[in-house]
Nucleic acid binder design. Structure first.
Length: 458
RNA sequence: GGCUGGAUGGUAGAGUGGCUAUACAUCGGUUUGCAAAACCGCGGACACCAGUUCGAAUCUGGUUCCAGCCUCCA
């Protein structure tokens, strides 16, 4: 068994070699909670949920941490504009994030650290950086000195001087070097703040992740994940801080970054104003459908988001659930051992979910065609076991085709009436009832076994 | 300007130096009171130009176009 992962550090696909195969550590940069979570927040949560499952399939112990950044100027700004308590405001959106991604089948991580609960660790780390000559205090701020770290820029493959030449932002006067970034900044009374050797203040962006990684996973971790757009500056800075503060060569051995979501061939982003919120998407579509869509591209590629791609995901899952619905009497054994090797092989290869999905489709087809009870049990077991690993097919197939807000008794009564009419070959009445149900978005399917109904998905 | 990635059938999306990806859609068939679902089957693709090779959509070089990061971002 070897997992291959594309490592941003080297720009290559590499064989994953853990620091300690009996205890794997993985960290995902979770959201800064200042608004409703969008589908761009959902993609890493979903993708690395699968990676977490895969690692847990292979290794006896995996510690997966996914943080919540609940102290940030964006949070302060939003909360203050709305006249709300900043702490409560952040907590509210952290809970919403968790609730929303849960709808997409994302399991809770092993550890969910909050930045504000790690202020002492953050201050200690900043102290270390100052002591070791990698940071300096100036005008109530503490800044990381990029010149003090020769490897600065290596993760994101950037040359500091080039970046400064193209810099478009005004440089704060207290910075020794234009690329120096803030570790600690002063807070006035209106802002959240904590006592520190540099006065009352709050942490800058980046340091919280370094401190939380160290606290929960150690000074060097196996895998650090996040969105592609975090490579610079966030991860570059995290790596610099951590390596300097901990006096280590490496911070994370594997840096794994997911691609963006594209709407009309453009990244979904705040500046373009094309943000789609999870809460709005799951109002219209099943979470599992969205999860399928998010995993139907390999994680490093962009996802083309459209109504059409949602529809395709819906239809594909409908077909698979139909196969399961036809085989409800077969008793499947859901177990790791029943996951087909082809699926593990696909996932081991840098999380190739499209191939895994192709395999799932083939198995679903086998299941639909299966004649013998042995085959039925075999394929159903494979499908449900692989589904568990990837986060699919655990819903009851009957309920998959129903809607929560529908009057089942009434529908079944009408179906009974229609079947009486059919027995009497009263096709006119039969069709009239079918139309009546169709108006309620209910689709009927007659078979030798009786009449089956489903709510038509939009 | 610097650094990354891309360009595959109607659409989405993998992969491979010669062998059906897969899904959705279309078309034909089986089935059906009608239908639906399911199944069977048929097509159809590798941006452009050179080169390497017995053979390239797959390797190399170039061209064009697209996206991302360099500024908050997942």
């Amino acid at each position: 068994m070897t997992i291959q992962l594309h490592n941003t550090k080297t720009g290559k696909k590499e064989t994953f070699v853990p620091i300690d195969k009996n205890s794997i550590t993985m960290y995902l940069c979770g959201p800064t909670v200042y608004n409703y979570a969008h589908i761009g927040n959902a993609r890493p949560a979903v993708v690395f949920d699968v990676l977490n499952n895969l690692l847990k399939y292979h290794y006896p112990k995996v510690t997966y941490a996914r943080n919540i950044t609940d102290i940030d100027d964006k949070i302060n700004k939003s909360a203050m504009e709305l006249g709300q308590n900043i702490k409560k405001y952040a907590k509210k959106y952290a809970d919403i994030y968790n609730h929303d991604i849960e709808q997409l089948g994302v399991q809770a991580p092993d550890i969910e650290p909050y930045a504000t609960e790690h202020i002492p660790q953050i201050i200690a780390m900043i102290n270390d950086l100052i002591t070791k000559g990698h940071a300096y205090a100036a005008e109530g701020h503490v800044l990381f000195s990029v010149n003090s770290y020769e490897n600065y820029g290596r993760l994101s493959n950037r040359n500091i001087d080039d970046m400064i030449a193209g810099a478009r932002v005004e440089i704060a006067p207290y910075k020794k070097h234009p690329a120096d970034f803030v570790l600690w900044k002063p807070s006035d009374e209106s802002l959240p703040g904590w006592g520190s050797p540099w006065g009352r203040g709050r942490p800058g962006w980046h340091i919280e992740c370094s401190a939380m990684c160290k606290e929960h996973l150690g000074t060097i971790i196996d895998i650090h994940c996040g969105g592609r757009d975090l490579v610079f500056p966030h991860h570059e800075n995290e790596a610099a801080q951590s390596c300097c503060a901990n006096s280590t060569e490496s911070f994370a051995n594997y840096w794994v970054h997911n691609g963006m979501i594209n709407m009309d061939n453009h990244k979904m982003s705040k500046s373009l104003g094309n943000i789609l919120l999870i809460k709005d998407v799951v109002k219209k579509h099943k979470g599992e459908v969205i999860r399928w869509l998010l995993l139907s591209s390999q994680y490093r590629q962009s996802v083309s988001w459209s109504e059409d791609s949602i529809y395709k995901s819906q239809k594909t899952l409908d077909r698979i659930y139909t196969a399961l619905r036809e085989n409800q009497d077969s008793i499947a054994e859901v177990h790791h051992n029943n996951i087909p090797a082809s699926i593990i092989k696909a996932l081991d290869d840098d999380l190739n979910t499209p191939i895994a999905f192709a395999e799932i489709n083939k198995i679903a087809k086998q299941l639909a065609k299966a004649k013998s009870s042995n085959d039925k049990v075999l394929y159903k077991s494979q499908l449900l076991s692989a589904g568990l690993l990837l986060g699919f097919f655990q819903e009851n197939p009957e309920s998959w085709f129903k809607a929560d807000d529908i009057d089942s008794d009434k529908i079944e009564k009408l179906i009974k009436q229609r079947n009486t009419a059919r027995d009497n070959k009263d096709w006119e009445k039969s069709d009239q009832i079918r139309n009546e149900l169709a108006a309620m978005n209910v689709v009927l399917e007659d078979s030798a076994k009786g009449t089956r109904w489903s709510v038509k998905n939009q």
